[in-house]
């Protein structure tokens, strides 16, 4: 317990200083409410069970909220599901299974605007990080804005928002091969 306390404290401060680009500064944006029955997220690659999830199916997973600050310092509550829970559902090696060669796996996130970013599997896993990344479908209790939603990655431990990517569509898991 003596060791754990400072970690908890530091993660609390990390949360405080995290920045997510401003959503309140949008001009003329409308929330996206139209995607409940469409496939909104696909999981592929090194998975036992490829998934194609509707928003309803995604929301059937345990819901979590995290609060992060935007670059103007205003806090926002993002609500969604742990990336780890989605990956586990697809049979990706998570938790206890995330060891050995599985640590050379990465997750490629692809978004509707063509943007792609990479995470290591360990960065998304509760056995490695304190504050778990989520796939958010709500901001401050409302659906995400159309130009950022319906889904957005939220990386609570990143100092820059660049990996909290908008309009997330697919996560594909791969072994790094060199």
């Amino acid at each position: 317990m003596k060791i754990k306390l400072p970690i908890l404290e530091s993660s609390f401060f990390l949360l405080l200083f995290c920045t997510i680009s401003p959503s309140q500064a949008q001009v003329n944006s409308t929330p996206d409410t139209s995607s409940h029955n469409k496939i909104v997220l696909s999981i592929s690659g090194e998975v036992n069970q490829p998934l194609h999830l509707t928003l309803t199916a995604l929301q059937a997973l345990p819901e979590h909220s995290i609060t992060v600050k935007d670059k103007n310092g205003a806090p926002h509550q993002y609500t969604g599901v742990y990336v780890q829970d989605v990956l586990s559902k697809a049979g990706v090696t998570t938790g206890h299974e995330l060891s050995g060669e599985n640590l050379s796996k990465y997750v490629l996130a692809s978004c509707a605007d063509g943007y792609q970013v990479v995470y290591s599997l360990a960065e998304l896993d509760s056995s490695f990080v304190q504050n778990l990344p989520i796939i958010a479908y709500k901001i401050d209790g409302q659906p995400l804005f159309k130009n950022k939603g319906p889904l957005r990655m939220v990386m609570p431990e990143d100092k820059k928002p660049a990996r909290s990517c908008f309009q997330l569509q697919t996560l594909s898991v791969h072994f790094a091969q060199q």
């Binding site: 500064a25 949008q26 001009v27 003329n28 944006s29 605007d113 804005f145 159309k146 130009n147 908008f166």
Partner: peptide, 19 residues
């Protein structure tokens, strides 16, 4: 011009016309 589909990277009061 602001619209729901405008790139989030251009969608700020400083950049959008007429604000």
């Amino acid at each position: 011009i602001a619209s729901p589909a405008l790139s989030p990277f251009l969608n700020s009061p400083q950049m959008v016309a007429g604000t």
